[in-house]
């Protein structure tokens, strides 16, 4: 231990040398110096299981994944215990997607209803996409007409995939989506992969263009869209925005090498997800380069030993 001679060393600092340098943290931890201390140590990565008593409800507030019984805060899911000041939450390790306003999601239309679509977004209820929250053809800012209501299936049909943003919640907790941006809308030219939502982290941008000619949309709900790269100039379109292109069901011509690249990326994501490795663009790129170096076929990736080797090399490098 380094001792600074210019400061007088206090006797109780001998075992907690760092404390003097972080007065705020020291005060915070001092409050927890009771028998509950081990609960929140090491960055709150303590694991718990349903029915385990975490702490007393008099000194802490219960958050998600907990309930109060007999003045005790008790975990109700298996996962990691997290604490923010006096709020104790348990984050389940595997669960369905919990939407938050502003999240980017990829979903699939399940139903067309009057003035709205129902969208499966891997959440506890189907999301709602109102006719008023999509871009209508012929000008971005336009009132919806009765004729639009009658031809809703020309915009989105059952089974169509789309990328959207969570706009708001209804009183029962169902989420409302919107696609009022040129970045959002119907998806084509690609393939969907579904992974546990916890493996997708919030990033600055969820639209990723990999240098191998593949675009990725990482939906926070665990749905990932892997598609052919589209040039940004093409994507933006003209001032008036082309409905034909936005709501088209027709795939573009995709050449052999792009198809291979898309399948390769898809399989990499599947392999990483099966080993429970969180996704990131650098990780994917690293993995892509590794698989190209290995000169194996795309489908070989799904073999157990190749997958293990992939995960081992990629996680070791980063």
């Amino acid at each position: 231990m380094i001792s600074f001679t210019s400061f007088p060393i206090q006797p109780d600092d001998i075992h907690n040398g760092w404390r003097a340098h972080h007065p705020d943290i020291a005060e915070d931890t001092l409050m927890d110096l009771d028998d509950e201390q081990e609960l929140f140590e090491a960055g709150g990565s303590k694991l718990t299981y349903p029915g385990e008593s975490l702490t007393s409800s008099q000194s802490y507030m219960r958050g998600h994944g907990t309930y109060v019984d007999n003045e005790e805060v008790i975990a109700s899911v298996a996962g990691t215990v997290e604490r923010v000041n006096k709020l104790v939450t348990v984050r389940a390790i595997r669960t369905r997607y919990n939407p938050e306003v502003g999240d980017l999601v990829v979903g699939r239309i399940t139903e067309v209803q009057p003035r709205r679509w129902k969208v499966d977004a891997n959440s506890r209820q189907d999301a709602v996409l109102m006719l008023s929250s999509v871009n209508l053809p012929g000008g971005v800012q336009r009132r919806k007409l009765e004729s639009d209501e009658l031809q809703m299936r020309t915009f989105f049909e059952e089974g169509d995939l789309l990328v959207a943003e969570v706009q708001a919640f209804f009183s029962d907790g169902a989420m409302s989506l919107h696609t009022r941006s040129l970045k959002y809308g119907k998806l084509r030219n690609g393939q969907l992969v579904s992974i546990p939502p916890i493996l997708v982290r919030r990033l600055k941008s969820h639209f990723i263009a990999l240098p191998c000619g593949v675009d990725l949309i990482l939906g926070l709900n665990g749905y990932i869209w892997v598609s052919k790269h589209v040039k940004e100039s093409d994507q933006e379109g003209e001032e008036g925005f082309d409905t034909e292109a936005v709501y088209s069901n027709q795939n573009d011509e995709i050449d052999e090498s792009t198809r291979l690249a898309i399948s390769r990326v898809t399989n990499i994501i599947r392999v990483l997800a099966s080993r429970f490795v969180p996704l990131s663009d650098t990780l994917l790129l690293e993995a892509y380069e590794w698989t190209v170096d290995q000169e194996g076929g795309v489908k070989d990736l799904l073999q157990e030993d190749v997958g293990d080797a992939l995960v081992a090399t990629v996680t070791a490098r980063l």
Binding site: I93, F276, V277, L283
Partner: peptide
Amino acid sequence: MKSAVKTRTSALVTAMGSGPRVGAG
């Protein structure tokens, strides 16, 4: 049952941690 759940949870948490660290990014 408890020990099985604990083993499973810690295996998943370890696997998640072995990727790029949350903190690093």
